[in-house]
């Protein structure tokens, strides 16, 4: 807990210490991916159900947030609740179908992928609702006095204009981490971990595995939707490829696996590590060979394979092991 207060404080003060600009942008991206990762972690890390299609939740959240404003002029502060709750319902529906029919392991991964693809096609195919492949572009608010009301900071006072979205995603991240931390300590969290470790044994102990997994996928969907809400407010734009394409699904699982599955800090640690490496690679290799795309993802993929091969508990596990060696006892990090 003390560790978390330090992390939260450091992240909150970062824009003041680092000044705005590159480093804050880097932290903002890190936090955004950490939220996507935390969403995945609840279901994948704690529940052992590996989704390959979490983009379906990111995209649904983003589209609900965008369309309620675009079509009906609803305030973004109200639409965000519909986005989060609506996506949780979509998560529950997908979970109900998948878990009711007993899909596990690879089959669950495949069906989540299929749902993301189906939503991708739907978003593209009904321009009268979603604006189709062109995407939804929200109107830019240029009135500084309405910056907060419109949840758009571009024309707000200079501090808010530069850091408003950093604090937005920081708040979302801290909320998601707190929710995960609370979940870990409830009966529900213990049951979820039991289902991950051995579903049949958990069932035999009287745990309703179906209900537990359904709860986890709904929370996972809600957290991921919040990342979608942030994305829409920041860029005022969403289109089917960004929303439901495979890249968000992949980003969501990189961070927690590399950072440490089923730990609260894992997604943040993983996201920080891969984007740190990514930035360093762009600055060195990218610089040396000309600015070509792909370098960062080549590294992410390689790191993923190496972590899977050598660090089954991710960086958090490595940290805990090092800590034990240093202190000689079993300190819990």
């Amino acid at each position: 807990m003390a560790g978390w207060l330090i992390i939260a404080l450091a992240l909150a003060l970062a824009p003041l210490a680092l000044g705005s600009g590159r480093w804050v942008e880097f932290l903002e991206l890190t936090l955004f991916v950490a939220v996507l990762g935390q969403g995945w972690n609840v279901l994948g890390g704690y529940g052992g159900q590996y989704s390959f299609g979490n983009a379906v939740f990111f995209g649904t959240g983003a589209y609900v947030q965008a369309l309620l404003q675009y079509r009906f002029g609803i305030s973004p502060w109200i639409s965000l609740w519909f986005a989060i709750a609506g996506t949780a319902a979509v998560g529950a529906a997908i979970g109900w179908l998948s878990f009711r029919y007993g899909l596990r392991g690879s089959y669950f991964a495949l069906i989540t992928l299929a749902f993301a693809e189906a939503f991708h096609v739907l978003a593209r195919s009904f321009p009268s609702i979603t604006e189709g492949g062109r995407g939804v572009q929200l109107a830019l608010n240029q009135d500084p006095d309405r910056a907060l009301a419109t949840f758009q900071f571009n024309f707000a006072g200079s501090f808010l204009a530069e850091n408003g979205f950093y604090y937005t995603i920081l708040a979302v991240f801290l909320a998601s981490a707190f929710a995960t931390w609370r979940m870990e300590r409830t009966r529900f969290g213990a049951q979820l971990i039991a289902v991950r470790e051995n579903e049949d044994a958990a069932q035999a102990l009287g745990i309703d595995a179906f209900r537990v997994k359904l709860g986890a996928i709904s929370i996972s969907a809600a957290i991921t939707a919040a990342a979608g809400v942030y994305y829409v407010q920041k860029y005022l734009f969403i289109e089917p490829g960004i929303a439901f394409g495979t890249s968000k699904s992949v980003e969501a699982l990189f961070a927690p696996i590399i950072g440490g599955l089923g730990t609260v800090v894992g997604p943040l640690l993983g996201s920080f590590f891969i984007h740190g490496v990514g930035e360093a690679a762009k600055a060195t290799i990218g610089q040396a060979l000309g600015d070509r795309p792909g370098v960062d993802l080549i590294l992410f993929g390689t790191i993923l394979i190496l972590v899977l091969a050598f660090l089954p508990r991710g960086l958090a596990g490595l940290w805990a092991a090092l800590w034990r060696r240093l202190t000689g006892g079993d300190g819990n990090a």
């Binding site: 991964a109 696996i257 070509r292 370098v295 993802l297 080549i298 394979i305």
Partner: peptide, 18 residues
């Protein structure tokens, strides 16, 4: 295995892009 092959696909795809 699923995740390892996913990692491989990302490496190969972005290697081609690079």
């Amino acid at each position: 295995i699923l995740l390892v092959t996913l990692g491989l696909s990302i490496v190969i795809e972005n290697g081609a892009l690079f």
